[in-house]
Simulated assay, not measured.
Amino acid sequence: MTSAHTTNAQAPSSLTTSFPRVLHAHGPDPERKAKLELYSWLVGQWEIDVTTILEDGRTHAGRGEIHAGWILQGRAIQDVWMIPRLNRRRPDIEQLPGAGNWYGTTLRIYDPNLDAWRILWNDPATNVFTQQTGRARGRDIVQEGPDPGGGSMRWTFAEIEPASFHWTAERSLDHKNWRKQVDIRARRV
């Protein structure tokens, strides 16, 4: 009788492919390329200037970075957003008021049944998990979904250019009155 350990040692060579190799893709899936273009501009590396806006109107500034790439045979985009920048992260660093110190990832997956993108954001550094739906709204991209703290959230990519974009995070308790919580200006590196 063969043990599980022996069986695993004799696994076919296709199972020895590295995790990064099976996750990452070189570009969008050709069959879905037209629909995947909504977020394709995000692929790459970005520096970000972050402003948080507290409920009392006070603001705080920080810097961070974003890294984004194609994954899952080009059917999705994954990114990592971090504040502060990776080379400034250490255990004793002060939290950015109103946002905390992000180190999270987004999965952006086009859903042909919705003709929209399913957005999954998870940040174990700040213990935040959200699900949103993303769609084009004119030249902007708007992602909306329930806020884990109650109410609704809206995250908007605007002023999208090849080397820059503007991103805002807003929250509403009544889906009518929106309060901006985070404002980001990004530059391609």
Results as ranks from 00 to 15, higher is better:
residue 70 W to R: 03
residue 124 P to F: 08
residue 92 D to P: 00
residue 111 D to Y: 07
residue 92 D to M: 06
residue 114 L to P: 00
residue 76 A to F: 04
residue 75 R to E: 14
residue 73 Q to R: 13
residue 77 I to E: 01
residue 89 R to V: 10
residue 114 L to Q: 12
residue 116 A to E: 06
residue 84 P to N: 00
residue 66 I to D: 11
residue 104 G to Q: 00
residue 115 D to M: 10
residue 61 A to Y: 11
residue 67 H to Y: 13
residue 110 Y to S: 08
residue 65 E to R: 11
residue 108 R to I: 11
residue 93 I to F: 09
residue 106 T to W: 01
residue 128 V to I: 12
residue 123 D to C: 14
residue 85 R to L: 09
residue 116 A to Q: 06
residue 108 R to W: 07
residue 92 D to S: 10
residue 108 R to K: 05
residue 123 D to S: 14
residue 120 L to F: 15
residue 117 W to K: 04
residue 122 N to E: 14
residue 88 R to N: 10
residue 126 T to G: 09
residue 63 R to H: 11
residue 70 W to Y: 07
residue 90 R to L: 11
residue 82 M to F: 02
residue 89 R to G: 03
residue 80 V to N: 05
residue 110 Y to A: 03
residue 76 A to Q: 03
residue 121 W to H: 07
residue 80 V to G: 02
residue 119 I to F: 15
residue 128 V to H: 04
residue 66 I to F: 05
residue 64 G to F: 05
residue 100 G to Y: 01
residue 64 G to C: 09
residue 92 D to F: 02
residue 114 L to V: 03
residue 117 W to R: 10
residue 72 L to C: 13
residue 84 P to Q: 06
residue 83 I to M: 15
residue 104 G to I: 00
residue 76 A to H: 03
residue 99 A to H: 13
residue 95 Q to W: 10
residue 104 G to N: 00
residue 101 N to Q: 01
residue 67 H to Q: 15
residue 109 I to F: 08
residue 62 G to V: 04
residue 109 I to H: 07
residue 73 Q to N: 14
residue 111 D to S: 09
residue 125 A to Y: 13
residue 120 L to K: 14
residue 93 I to P: 06
residue 104 G to S: 01
